[in-house]
């Protein structure tokens, strides 16, 4: 199954979004938070992303979602390194964090592949709230 990693500046935001996404992934989807810096404060850490990807990786690839700014840059830097190392397939979804995580977990729980899970996350961008 495709794993999912949520990267946020805030540990609480990453963990809360992961909790919600796991519930929508009917307890099957593996959603791991990578929130804050290594000291537990607000920030981003490529080491926390590395650890979360290792936990989420079951051999079918890992989808990353990021909140903003340095989370996105850290995710992209991690992917560049992962591509150089070639040990795990990782993609970053161009998607809002919460909506994207819920959509990705729902799709991942069906056993779909990495590209399909990424597409589901990105399609969440079009789910409007007032129309």
């Amino acid at each position: 199954m495709v794993g999912i990693v949520l990267i946020s500046h805030s540990p609480a935001l990453a963990e809360g979004a992961a909790e919600l996404a796991r519930a929508m992934g009917v307890g099957k989807a593996v959603v791991e938070p990578a929130g804050g810096d290594v000291d537990g404060g607000l920030g981003t850490s490529i080491e926390l992303v590395e650890h979360a990807v290792a936990r989420a990786d079951a051999g079918d690839g890992v989808l990353l979602l990021a909140d903003l700014g340095s989370s996105v840059l850290t995710a992209r830097t991690f992917i560049e390194d992962a591509e150089d190392a070639g040990d795990v397939a990782v993609l970053l979804a161009d998607a809002p964090l919460v909506e994207g995580a819920v959509a990705a977990a729902s799709m991942a729980a069906t056993g779909a592949g990495l590209a399909a899970v990424r597409d589901a996350a990105e399609a969440a961008r079009d789910h409007r709230k007032l129309r």
Binding site: G43, T44, S45, I46, E47, L73, T74
Partner: peptide, 15 residues
């Protein structure tokens, strides 16, 4: 710099 900086400047200067 990538692993220790923390903000957006970490990935950018590191890269």
């Amino acid at each position: 710099i990538v692993s220790k900086t923390g903000g957006a400047s970490g990935p950018l200067y590191g890269t």
